[in-house]
């Protein structure tokens, strides 16, 4: 007659016979655990111990030692969630730069018609209507914006684009340096590297956007897309007063600022981020 042992649900550790770690393995396992936990803290310690003067040498050495392990296992995080302060959001707008008179249809079905030749270059025609896929695309207007919760859905997809726009802004390196900055050769070398990477990323994203916005042509290997220019936008965080007293909406596009690619304008003066001017939007409770 078969039997069944009685269940014992009293404790997690008492069920007998439990699988214990073989004695001779214990030291080895504990050492490996110690190694792994050191690797986990190596990046945040290094990240936190950096200042304008230096990186703390012992944490820098720890991070260097563990670099292959930390990086390949994707443990290289500083865990700076919403820290040190919640900051402004950054968006990326793909602006069309078509040839004069060119007519085409974007991939999301917006019929563009004949595109006007003139518009103020920095005049980003962003408004709430850009969220409407049927908007007319004109020279200088936004063809594609991200993150945009109406275009990128589900929310996780939207968040992927959001992270890319933040990354694009984080790695930004201006197209030129101010004369004062050119005196510091180390700074210039770092800028050159950063600028090279930023330009590569910009080119890659521009090509991808052009492809997305183009009408695929089956006769060609790669579809011929419109010219696209990427513009970085920043949405500063509004104050309580702006939202609750002045009635500004969180998504009010008047808040968006175009971030310059260069610290200089042709006259030689440095520029401040440009605030966009939009038609007034009825204010209301957010």
């Amino acid at each position: 007659m078969a039997t069944s042992r009685r269940p014992n649900q009293e404790d997690d550790h008492e069920e007998s016979p439990s699988r214990r770690c073989p004695r001779k393995w214990v030291p080895c396992v504990l050492v490996l655990v110690g190694f792994h936990l050191l690797a986990v803290v190596a990046e945040p310690l290094h990240f936190f111990s950096r200042s304008e003067v230096q990186s703390s040498p012992e944490f820098a050495a720890l991070r260097r030692t563990f670099a292959p392990y930390v990086e390949w296992l994707y443990l290289d995080h500083g865990y700076f969630f919403f820290a040190p302060n919640p900051g402004p959001s950054h968006l990326v707008a793909a602006m069309l730069v078509p040839e004069a008179g060119q007519t085409w249809t974007s991939s999301f079905g917006a019929s563009a018609g004949s595109l006007p030749e003139t518009d103020t270059p920095n005049r980003v025609g962003i408004s709430d209507r850009h969220l409407n896929p049927k908007n007319q695309l004109a020279n200088g207007e936004i063809a594609y914006l991200f993150p945009d919760r109406t275009r990128q859905w589900p929310r996780l997809l939207y968040h992927r684009y959001f992270m890319l726009s933040e990354f694009y802004n984080n790695v930004f390196a201006p197209s030129e340096l101010l004369p004062d900055d050119r005196q510091d050769l180390e700074f210039v070398a770092r800028w050159e590297q950063d600028r090279e990477f930023y330009a590569l990323l910009q080119k890659s994203m521009t090509n991808s956007m052009a492809y997305r916005l183009s009408k695929p042509d089956p006769t060609m290997d790669r579809p011929q897309g419109p010219g696209v220019n990427l513009v970085r936008l920043e949405r500063p965080l509004p104050t309580v007063e702006q939202i609750l007293k002045q009635g500004l909406r969180l998504n009010d596009s008047r808040n968006l600022e175009v971030l310059p690619e260069s610290p200089r304008i042709p006259s030689g003066e440095s520029v401040q981020p440009q605030r966009l001017k939009f038609p007034s939007i009825p204010s209301g409770k957010p």
Binding site: F80, A83, P84, N85, P86
Partner: peptide, 11 residues
Amino acid sequence: FGGLGKLRGGM
């Protein structure tokens, strides 16, 4: 570390 990061911020 997330908490330490926040401790650096005035907000």
